[in-house]
Design a protein around this nucleic acid. Sequence first.
DNA 1: TAAATAGGAATGAATATTCATTCCTGAAGA
DNA 2: TCTTCAGGAATGAATATTCATTCCTATTTA
Lengths: 188, 188
Amino acid sequence: MSKNKQEDIFQAAMELFGKRGYDGTTVPMIADKAKVGAGTIYRYFENKESLVNALFVKCVEQFFDAIRKDFPQNSEVRQQFNHIFRRMFVFAKDNSNALQFINSHDEGYYLNEKSNQTFQDFLGFFRNVIEEGIDQGVIRPLPTNAHIAIVYGAFGMLFSHIQSGRMEETPELLNELEESLWNAIRVN
Amino acid sequence: MSKNKQEDIFQAAMELFGKRGYDGTTVPMIADKAKVGAGTIYRYFENKESLVNALFVKCVEQFFDAIRKDFPQNSEVRQQFNHIFRRMFVFAKDNSNALQFINSHDEGYYLNEKSNQTFQDFLGFFRNVIEEGIDQGVIRPLPTNAHIAIVYGAFGMLFSHIQSGRMEETPELLNELEESLWNAIRVN
DNA sequence: TAAATAGGAATGAATATTCATTCCTGAAGA
DNA sequence: TCTTCAGGAATGAATATTCATTCCTATTTA
């Protein structure tokens, strides 16, 4: 029997929300998977919406921290890009449920102000790196959001293909993918 | 008063599913928006799941047709890429609801065999072009799914940014984006 | 033993689906 | 030409089910 029920609920909700979506997941489903009573969930969260928001913030912050940790603030932009790219895939491998949950919920109508802000802050980190790159003339002078969409959008679908087994993740492939995406945003 | 109720139902469902997801959309919501009685929906579709599947197949086929039409079968791969890229954005502009619906439902647990197959056939079209490009030595020799994920994944998030107004679509930007994505997949 | 925690059956609201009825349209009859 | 009528289409209230949330009891902890 687990000691930390809140964490059990988070894990169960993350998996179910990630696979079936927010509205496709019922509270009793979460309770079953977490091996707690349905009522117990309401001891830890005010309601289903609070749960999904708390979980979203938690997951995005984990992802954000994983990327920020040891970030080479004073290195070349190319090196910073390498850091971000690698950390994204490491996080994806270690926390595939979290990532699947984030990617399928970041536009949910049930997300509150804090959740949306947290996600914006996360993307803001990429924004800074890209703007720095544009200023230095190493990244193409396009709207920052365009570069973010290319890199993060591609990453999302790459992850989904790896996750589902339609593609195999190897160190060599990762090297190639990093170069592909860098080629997309760099000046020639 | 509209003449074609089935089409009214399709349109309403497409918008609502696209914005709120399958489980977040109720049948009465669809009926209201389509301006038909709730029961009428069941004269045209066996149930909610049949509706979402019929709609998914219809939308993907429309998207597929829009891209296949006038496809330059005998041109260079670079030219074929140009064709696909442009058609995707034209379709996105003219059918934003359809595209939003497709992109948010292509992994839904409620999709049946036919829906999944239709989507795979659609991606298969890209696959052929990319494989041809790899054979000719103009596209990098990576798994085809990797290239598809990069291009289609990036496209999906670019569309989402344009759609929501976070980015403005201009002819110049489109030219740049096409080049960015081609740079991602081409050999250097 | 008192207080806090957990459980899960009970509840009421919301939802998908059904169905008895009404509404239209166009043909038949006067 | 006007009226009647048949049958398919449409409706939305009614039903059966599912769901989020509550609440009372049992269990654990201090």
